[in-house]
Amino acid sequence: MNVVLFKPSQRPAAVVAPLEPPRRDIAGVPVAALTRDEALALIDHAFDGGNHLHLAYCNANLVNIAARDAGLRERLARFLVLPDGIGVDIASRLLYGTAFPANLNGTDFTPAILAAREHPLSVMLLGGRPDVAERAAAKLRADYPQHHFSVLSHGYFGPDEEAALLARLAHERPDLLLVAFGNPRQEKWIADRIDSRHCAVAAGIGALFDFLAGEVARAPESFRTLRLEWVYRLWLEPRRLWRRYVVGNPAFLLRVLRQKLAGHSA
């Protein structure tokens, strides 16, 4: 079933987006093959009272983690998983003969969701180190004054605090919940704790709060244009990220090649 989800006043032309998006299996993770506007349409549909939505962004690192974690793969099957980065694009070319229609990484696509939405949204932030979410919320308020931003908690709350956080979330029920625990904790927490009582859309957004708060620098535009932001991040934080990229990227490509040789491609 195809539904026109935008009003002409909101975008230059109406976008027809499938409520069940086409997905491509990337080493066991079902990644949606959508244009930027189609993805925005599905999220708008949830904001406007459609199905409650869990949102994840899939890069090579998340695929590597999911390959070793059947529980994570089962949870991600219930998410709208969007393609993040050049790694999954390479995988899509190898397996399906074409790249994904758009690179929808959470650092850039989350602001796109906020910018595209004219009707005011309530947005709640959860995660990061103490004070980081507050500074991220202040930056978002300055950039998107049409929306309301609040902080639920930093990411270091204890098990005894969780029930109160969930109760507050259910009471306030924001349109958008941004969860920054890192992979795979944020995806598992959203899958296991969050449902339609708590928000319209729950998104795991990784390091976004750190970028917004100025804790971590974004790569220069030239790196982003060339899809090499991961190289810049590795240069900035080699001790923390060398295993993810230097070891993880070749492991990811091997997984994709094994999938191709096994015949699991379109």
Rank of each mutant, 00 (worst) to 15 (best):
N2R: 12
F6A: 14
F6D: 15
P18H: 09
L19W: 02
P21V: 08
P22I: 02
R24W: 12
R24K: 11
D25R: 04
A27W: 02
V29W: 00
P30M: 03
R36E: 15
E38S: 12
L40G: 08
H45L: 08
H52T: 04
L53C: 11
L53Y: 05
L55Y: 02
Y57A: 01
Y57E: 01
C58A: 14
N61C: 01
N61W: 06
L62I: 08
V63N: 08
D69T: 05
L72P: 04
R75M: 05
R78E: 13
L80S: 10
L82Q: 06
G87Y: 07
V88W: 02
D89W: 07
A91H: 13
L94Q: 11
L95M: 09
G97I: 01
F100D: 11
A102N: 10
G106A: 05
P111W: 02
I113R: 03
L114Q: 05
E118T: 12
H119Q: 14
V123D: 00
G127F: 06
G127S: 09
R129V: 00
R129T: 01
P130L: 00
D131Q: 04
V132Q: 04
A133Q: 01
E134T: 00
A137I: 00
A138C: 00
L140E: 06
R141K: 14
D143A: 15
D143V: 08
Y144V: 10
P145W: 11
F149Y: 04
V151W: 04
H154I: 10
G158W: 01
P159W: 05
E162T: 08
A163K: 13
A164E: 13
L169C: 09
E172H: 09
R173P: 07
D175P: 02
L177T: 01
V179P: 04
F181T: 09
G182E: 04
G182T: 03
G182A: 06
N183C: 11
R185A: 14
I190S: 07
I190V: 12
R197L: 03
C199I: 03
A200G: 06
A202N: 03
A203S: 10
A203Y: 02
G204F: 02
F209T: 06
G214F: 08
R218L: 15
P220C: 06
L228I: 05
V231P: 07
Y232M: 04
Y232D: 12
L234Y: 09
L234F: 12
W235E: 02
L236A: 09
E237H: 11
P238Y: 11
W242G: 08
V246R: 09
G248V: 09
F252A: 10
L257S: 09
A266F: 07
